[in-house]
Structures are given as structure tokens and as C-alpha cells.
């Protein structure tokens, strides 16, 4: 890469290397995701990840920060997120004291005081500003989590930061990152993000994994789970996803469920235990009602047959 500092880990040079990089930290990515990630790293473009809750969007940023040994700067979005909590704020109490001190010492030079009050010394840096700061280990991983929760005004602001890797503080001037951070934006699609923002990013829809990949994920994340149990859990969840549920379980739920069943000392799926622990997988009462009891029993039997024949 451009930098020669020691300790900076180079970015992956190929798609295969990207897959390997993610796997190092136990993230089993499919090729499409690895391709997009590779491109985003090489092209220094933000990566825009959309998908259902619990498919591992946020995890990518964490894994990247871990494997590339970069700082992780996380901005959790929420309604009403504004400049003072996302970008920077002035340290008013300290400024107040400064003014009082200046008064006490007498002979106030107004221009000097103004310059002193609005200097970097009194600046409180919030995530966006932190993400633009230089770092010896390389530009940080900047995670903008659940952007759909912030209101549109913030989205518009982000547009400028993402496109130019710079921002302007009226009292201080323009702050520009020497190297743009690695930006990962995630959204759960509770509303549509504006096309202008999407255009500046590389887009990827993170889908549920297939059975093979999900088994590998369970295996890599939860090595303590019995092989038979994990295979059955994955097959059960995969069967649920084909049904017409209000909210299909994500990978996070699969992992939770496998952990829960292991905690209950289960070595294989048992229909009654499945019915009792459905709340770990399904979070809507309608869905649980539908699956509980006979339907759960049927799916467990299907899963067993399917695994026996395979």
C-alpha cells in the first residue's frame, strides 16, 4: 500500500485473499460479499450493506478492524442524531472558564480570545471526526450502523463526508483526512436510503447463508456444539426460512439457538425442547404459534430424514 509504516497490514490483493482474511476471524463470507468487500477496499469506496437483521452486516466491520488491525470507529444511528453527537462539539464549560480567566487577567484582546476559544483544544471529537483522524496503523474502519434509523438530514450530511473524506467546522476550518477511512454502512431497510448516497457506495444485499455455509459458521463460531446438533439446528432454521413467516430467523438467531440447546445439554433436536425454545429463534407471537407443537415436530422429522439420507 501507500504507507510504509511497520505494523500496518496490507490490504488483500485478490478476492481469495479477502475470503481468507475474513475467515481468519471466523467470518465465513460467500464469494459475492468477498468480491464487493475487496472492491471497496481497493477502490476506497464506502461499502453499503443492506439485509435483514442478524445476517452479519455489523460483524464485517468488526472482523475487518480485527484482522487488518485498524481502529474501529462506530457510529450508531438513531432518530435525531445531530452534528454535536455525531461529529464534534465544543467543550463549553472549559470555554467558559477560559473567558472568565481572560476577564480576570484583564486587557482582553477580542480577536485573540475568539481564536483561543475556538481552537482544537476545546474540541470534543465525536465518531465522524475521529474517523478522519490519521492513525499509524492505517485509516480506521468507520462503521455507520443502521443508517436507516437516522433522519434524512443526517444522511445528506454524511454524503459530503463520504464523498470528500473531509468536513468543515465553521470556527476552525476544513478538516481533511490524509487517507479516507474504510467505511461500512449498514441498514435494516426500515426506510429507503436516498439514491444519491447509494450511488457513492458499493451496494450489497447480505442474504441468509445456504445450509453448507451456515454449518461452517456455526462450527467456526461455536466449536463446542455437537456436530449432530449443529447440523440439525441449521437444517431446521433453513426449513423455517422457506416458510412464510413474518420474520425469518437470521444467522445470529441460529447461533443463539445452538448455544441455548447446548446449555440445555441437548445432543440432537427434540420436538418438545424445540417448542419450548422457539422464542430464541422467532420473535413474533404469530410465528411462534404457527410453528409450535405439531409443525415443529413435522419439521424435526423432515430434518432427520433429510440428514439421514444425505
Amino acid at each position: 500500500m501507500t504507507s510504509t509504516e511497520t505494523g500496518r497490514r496490507p490490504l488483500p490483493r485478490s478476492i481469495d485473499e479477502t475470503v481468507a482474511l475474513l475467515e481468519e476471524a471466523g467470518y465465513i463470507a460467500d464469494r459475492s460479499l468477498a468480491t464487493v468487500l475487496h472492491l471497496s477496499l481497493r477502490m476506497k469506496r464506502p461499502l453499503f450493506l443492506e439485509g435483514e437483521a442478524g445476517v452479519g452486516k455489523t460483524e464485517i466491520a468488526k472482523v475487518l478492524s480485527k484482522t487488518l488491525r485498524r481502529r474501529l470507529v462506530r457510529l450508531q444511528c438513531y432518530e435525531g442524531l445531530d452534528i454535536s453527537s455525531a461529529v464534534y462539539e465544543w467543550n463549553y464549560p472549559a470555554q467558559m472558564i477560559e473567558i472568565r480567566m481572560a476577564e480576570a487577567s484583564g486587557g482582553i484582546d477580542r480577536a485573540e480570545l475568539a481564536a483561543g476559544i475556538f481552537s482544537e483544544r476545546f474540541l470534543i471529537k465525536r465518531p465522524v471526526l475521529q474517523a478522519l483522524e490519521p492513525d499509524l496503523a492505517g485509516p480506521p474502519v468507520f462503521l455507520v450502523d443502521e443508517l436507516d434509523r437516522a433522519d434524512e438530514a443526517f444522511e445528506a450530511f454524511l454524503l459530503e463526508v463520504l464523498a470528500e473524506a473531509q468536513l468543515t467546522i465553521p470556527e476552525l476550518g476544513t478538516i481533511r483526512a490524509a487517507e479516507p477511512p474504510i467505511v461500512i454502512i449498514t441498514t435494516n431497510r426500515t426506510r429507503e436510503i436516498h439514491d444519491a448516497l447509494k450511488r457513492r457506495c458499493l451496494y450489497h444485499w447480505v442474504d441468509y447463508p445456504d445450509a453448507e455455509r451456515e454449518r461452517r459458521i456455526v462450527h467456526s463460531r461455536l466449536p463446542g456444539v455437537a456436530v449432530r446438533l449443529s447440523a440439525e439446528v441449521v437444517a431446521f432454521v433453513q426449513a423455517l426460512r422457506t416458510m412464510d413467516l413474518f420474520k425469518a430467523p437470521g444467522v445470529a438467531e441460529t447461533l443463539d439457538w445452538a448455544t441455548a440447546l447446548t446449555e440445555l445439554d441437548q445432543m440432537a433436536l427434540d420436538p418438545t425442547v424445540v417448542s419450548d425454545t422457539l422464542g430464541v429463534l422467532l420473535k413474533y407471537q404469530d410465528d411462534i404459534q404457527r410453528i409450535q407443537g405439531s409443525e415443529a415436530r413435522r419439521i424435526v422429522e423432515d430434518v432427520r430424514q433429510q440428514l439421514a439420507s444425505a
Binding site: 468480491t35 447509494k198 451496494y203
Partner: peptide, 29 residues
């Protein structure tokens, strides 16, 4: 962007080209 992406990605197969262009040209599921 798509042209730049193809140049950068180091594409070796049809599948790679598919996903490289997909990454840039598709913005909605």
C-alpha cells in the same frame, strides 16, 4: 465506476466479472 472496478478487481473468471459489475451497477435487491 464499473470500468474502474473491473480494472481493479483482478478478475479471473466469469463469476468474478458478474459480481464485480453487480457490486457497482446494482443498487437494489
Amino acid at each position: 465506476d464499473a470500468i474502474a472496478a473491473v480494472e481493479v478487481a483482478g478478475i479471473a473468471s466469469r463469476e468474478d466479472l458478474y459480481w464485480t459489475l453487480h457490486a457497482v451497477l446494482v443498487t437494489k435487491r
